[in-house]
């Protein structure tokens, strides 16, 4: 194997992810290759430099504030679902009643009947179309795939 082929293996060696057999093979290569040995040492130094960069440990107050924000979002999500479901039910019922009354009322002009019917049917078509689009996006959505892993 050439040095180029050993290079990705060098990463697994540094990160202690190399199986025993490959580790031995890589170490044998290192014995005879000054260039890879030097590169390995440079990557080792880089790893040490990166290890010095650490994130702040949040205080208890910060963690509590963080969790409150997450919790509020969880609660709000449920609120939106209930609100949307309620609004959809009421709007559908209202549209049905309106349509029924307008169509049955002999005093309402034909143009108004056609207008109201078109408006309601159009709204339903738009809603179904949007819903279908959302479902299609959800099917190909990377998030839903990621969370399954």
């Amino acid at each position: 194997m050439s040095c180029e082929e050993f290079k990705p293996m060098m990463m697994a060696y540094i990160d202690d992810e190399l199986p025993d057999e490959d580790r031995k093979r890589f170490e044998r290569h290192l014995e005879g290759c000054q260039s890879c040995k030097r590169e390995l040492s440079e990557f080792g130094s880089l790893k040490e430099e990166l290890a010095m960069v650490k994130f702040t440990e949040p205080t208890d107050a910060e963690l509590e504030h963080y969790w409150r924000s997450v919790y509020n979002r969880l609660e709000r999500g449920l609120g939106w679902i209930l609100f949307s479901a309620g609004a959809i039910v009421l709007l559908c019922y209202g549209a049905f009643v309106l349509l029924e009354e307008v169509i049955r009322d002999p005093n309402v002009a034909l143009a108004v009947k056609i207008g109201v019917s078109a408006l309601i049917v159009g709204a339903v078509v738009l809603f179904v179309s949007l819903l279908r689009e959302r479902l299609a996006i959800r099917k190909s959505d990377k998030y839903s795939r990621e969370v399954e892993r």
Binding site: E49, M52, K54, F55, T56, E57, P58, E62
Partner: peptide
């Protein structure tokens, strides 16, 4: 400051 920021701020860590 706060969560997600550098624990130790010095020239080297900021450079990295």
């Amino acid at each position: 400051t706060g969560p997600g920021t550098l624990a130790e701020k010095n020239e080297q860590t900021e450079r990295v």
